[in-house]
Amino acid sequence: MDDNVDTPGNGQRPARTLQGVALDLDGLLFDTEPLYWQVGSQLLDRRGHRFTDQLQRRMMGRPGVQAMQVLIDALQLTDLPETLLEESNDLYAEMLTQGVTPMRGLLPWFDALEASGLPFGVATSSLHRFADQILRQNGLRDRIQFLLTGEDVRKGKPDPEMYLLAANTLGIDPANMLVLEDSENGCAAAVAAGSVAVAIPGVHCEGHAYPGAHLVADGLDDARLLGLLTTKAG
């Protein structure tokens, strides 16, 4: 038996050689989930409904129109998803002007990625303009090799399309790609793509499950996560 073969979830070195990295954005690199909570709360308050943890959980990782459809279906709203999304985007854009908080260990993690020599980028369900704005506000846009957003795929997470596209963009097999996610929908997409999936749950991910994840880390500064970068191609 190969000594590198490991059981998902134990955080040991993966048997596969890493050749690239794909990173989620919301809740993984930046603490944007509270903003999404405020947006959802305002949207539904205007319609006489209450935004809940269960609704947010179902929406996480899905592109805008699909996320709005979750609300419409769950609450039998009469809005079109495109109209609801436009209203949501206006609210979110206003909130972003105040900036967002980086997650703990973000800059050291980027430094470690660059030191490893592995190509890496962001694969998020957010709109391109918002993801680009957040990354530029924090001086990170020029440090990534690619930016994929919900506008680049037809199916949102937990479908694997986003991470299959990320692997294709990197020019590598998905099995040799490390993916970092915070939500169960995102992690499920990474697992379904056949990648080395690492979950980093935030406070907004209470109750989320991560079957098939190689590691459930404590944060971007988790030593076990940093240790995975030693499995890059020599």
Rank of each mutant, 00 (worst) to 15 (best):
N4K: 09
V5Y: 14
G9T: 11
Q12Y: 08
A15P: 01
A15G: 08
T17M: 07
L25Y: 00
G27I: 04
P34L: 05
S41I: 00
Q42Y: 00
Q42H: 07
R47Y: 09
H49C: 05
F51G: 00
T52D: 06
R62E: 01
Q66E: 14
Q69V: 01
V70Y: 02
V70F: 01
Q76L: 08
E82V: 10
L85N: 12
E86L: 05
E86G: 10
E86Q: 13
A93L: 06
A93G: 00
A93Q: 15
E94I: 03
L96K: 09
R104L: 09
L106Q: 12
W109H: 14
D111H: 07
D111I: 05
G117P: 03
P119M: 01
F120S: 08
T124D: 04
S126L: 06
L127K: 10
H128G: 03
F130Q: 14
A131I: 11
Q133N: 05
I134A: 00
I134R: 00
L135S: 11
Q137V: 03
R143M: 04
R143Y: 13
L147D: 11
L147Q: 11
L148Q: 05
L148C: 02
K155A: 15
K155G: 01
G156C: 01
E161C: 06
Y163D: 05
L164K: 08
L165G: 02
N168Q: 12
T169D: 10
G171I: 04
P174H: 07
N176I: 04
E184Q: 15
G186Y: 02
A188K: 10
A193R: 02
S195K: 05
V196K: 06
A197T: 02
A197E: 09
I200S: 03
I200G: 02
G202S: 14
G212H: 11
L215M: 08
A217C: 14
A223C: 00
L225M: 15
L225I: 13
L226Q: 12
T230C: 00
